[in-house]
Design a protein around this nucleic acid. Structure first.
Lengths: 197, 197, 197, 197
DNA sequence: GACTAATCGAGACGGTACGTCCCGTCTTCTT
DNA sequence: AAGAAGACGGGACGTACCGTCTCGATTAGTC
């Protein structure tokens, strides 16, 4: 009987994609609903209907589960524009970033991981290697294109520019303050216009 | 002149100051040496030579212990200048803040609490009520004096000004980047100079 | 105004009789109401309106508190008849003992102490020295008078006689069985009548 | 012939027999060596090389652990003779009981549980349901066979007969007195011979 | 009539055990 | 080989009492 049942069955000695997705979604949901401290491996397994061992087989820790969801969600919902080169594009990107960080569930995952990185060096390392580092590279590229095009001429270096805009946004999000749209625009104006000297 | 013995052990039904200090120092030391995740109430008690119950009697959680050390240490090592009114004073304050957050052990406590606030709403509430709120008020007052004196005329509101300068500093500290001295100065310049309009 | 307030006041450097009685009654009440395991020194102090230290000053342990109440209560409610010499007197005494052990609150104290003696050698020692020993002596004397008067001629020695009658009663009380009146009489008959030899 | 390995460590989601035995033996040893008050769940776990949770998973309290050892040990070392029908058999059984209660470590467990039953109603209930009740039924059956065979004709009912013989033995054991061999024989004689009426 | 001394209620202290939750590892049986 | 299930040794949680201690107050007997 070759016709394999597509619904909820193990696929022999291959990884079970349904289990993988169930874990990612369970982790995401638990984080949003009950916070990071309630996000235990046992709770994820319970919610996902999966054995604990299945989680430990594929992820070294709950942090890596979250990181997987963050990477997948960010690619979908907050891509760094690969062609953008104008000041307006950049402003738009950071507006999207503010929205992401304050309103998107995936933004909560990011904030939780930044927080956990502060508590655990392993998390810090992974977060940089798999998320912050690659992303920052794309952001630098975006800025470089705009500078080259003469669209902007910031007085700060590229990393400092991103930090000067993203930093306040993240800081306000971390401390539970809202991020008014005007703030992003003002930061962009302050940072990207050429220095008066 | 009875000269009450300052080195007694217990002090009856009054609080034992030596135990209080031992707990605060133990918490501080453990955080710096082994990180937040190793900072358990049991470890604090062990290190301080104190019973667990003594901790629970006076603090509802390890977070409040840290908050107490943070408040006391900040008052000593990073007071908001109460008279400051010049642009130079303000620049000096934020340079001190950057040093505090990246190099002072008490700064690590602050970062850990900001992180934990992201994981636990109770921490968030306490951190605002007992630390961030009062501190922010002093910072706003400092800025208000400088504006009144005609020293600065920022294009952003007072909270946004502080976030625009402190945000990048905290964000870089949280993500393990250094905070070059020049960055603070540049941020201050960008944010405090009058808008070009 | 010399008339000293008789209600609730310390008597200088002498022991406070009211505190003593409050402790004894609190211990008794707690045992009857909530059982031995709920009978903590803190609970006694709470219930008696007395400081813990006051208990520890006068009694080495909660067991000694109970022993004090047991001794006082037994003297009042189950004295060994000092003049008794007839078989009927003896039968009456053991009937009273069965009632004491199954229905009198002080009997519960006795059972609790016999039990605790099984758990703690110190309790065993105190219970014998202050209660079981002296009492057994009086019982032996009672039996000796009856033997001398020719009222009874048991085949067992005096200790064995008491154990043969009291033993089953205590055992049934300890295992929560009732002690029917007929049982005591039958035991007395079996044990006190001369052996057939 | 796979010959399943009997010396495995954990056995999956089935109960680990080695851990079970380690707990029973540790409890037994601790009771004998240090008494009931030193018999804490933590001490059992420590001694058995087992996690506390493993104990709580299978037993609701330390009392049930003891009860398990008592049931297993009594079955081995003091079975109620299932065929016995003569007066001599009965005398032999109660001699064995006296030895068990005064000299066998398992007898100490029984005494400790009778004692604890006095302190805690839950213990009383379990002790009856799982030990005293079933055992008493076997003892009644033994007596019934002897009566039917015309071997004995006691003046007391079957429960009273057992209590009249076992009661003094237990009582002396509980109060730390020895139980001389002659005592059991004399009790048996007094109780089992036909009443003189 | 102040002083001394012991007792009292109160409760903080260092400590042990409680019973629960979760960790990360393991073993079994099923698919 | 991967999965669900869940037992295992371990460690921390927050609570209850232990027995000791120090406090400030009250009250007797002594000088």
């Amino acid at each position: 009987m070759p016709a394999p049942n597509p619904r909820r069955t193990h696929s022999g000695n291959r990884r079970d994609e349904q289990a993988r997705l169930a874990v990612l979604h369970a982790a995401d949901d638990l984080l949003v609903e009950h916070g990071f401290n309630a996000l235990t491996v046992e709770a994820i397994a319970r919610r996902a209907g999966v054995a604990k061992q299945t989680i430990y087989r594929w992820w070294p820790s709950k942090v890596e589960v979250l990181l997987d969801t963050l990477i997948e969600d960010t690619a979908k919902r907050l891509p760094v524009p690969a062609q953008a080169a104008t000041a307006t594009d950049i402003r738009g990107y950071f507006r999207g970033f503010a929205r992401f960080v304050t309103r998107d569930p995936a933004g909560q995952v990011l904030l939780a991981l930044i927080a956990e990185a502060q508590h655990d060096p392993g998390t810090a390392k992974s977060l940089h290697a798999r998320y912050l580092g690659p992303r920052r590279k794309q952001e630098r590229d975006m800025l470089a294109r705009a500078v080259e095009a003469g669209e902007i001429s910031p007085s700060l270096g590229p990393d400092a520019v991103v930090d000067a805009i993203a930093g306040p946004v993240v800081y306000r999000a971390l401390t539970g303050s809202s991020v008014p749209r005007g703030l992003v625009d003002a930061l962009v104006d302050d940072v990207l216009r050429p220095s008066p000297g």
